[in-house]
Amino acid sequence: MRVLNIVAIFLGLASAFLLYGLNYDTRMIEGRLQTREREAERARADIAVLRAERAHLARPERIEPIARGMGLEPLAARHLLPGPTVAASDITTSSTGP
């Protein structure tokens, strides 16, 4: 009976320590998790700002004059050769080519 009591007390104490340790670890991990989550949140907020800025910089009204300045223009009918000629010559060069 006495041995049993001692063992019980010992087990009780041990489990109390274990519980305390577990609790402490959990809190630590929770804290770290929160830090990480905050970092992720901040990164997400930064990404949102950067994406908005990129979209602002890439807006067509800004890009168009730059593109035109580089000599680019919308594709028009005059840029195209008559279809069949191009297709036929393409086929001959590719089939007879090395």
Binding site: V49, R51, A52, A55
Partner: peptide, 8 residues
């Protein structure tokens, strides 16, 4: 392409 977004 982005037209509207939320920022903090």
């Amino acid at each position: 392409r982005l037209l509207a977004t939320d920022v903090q």
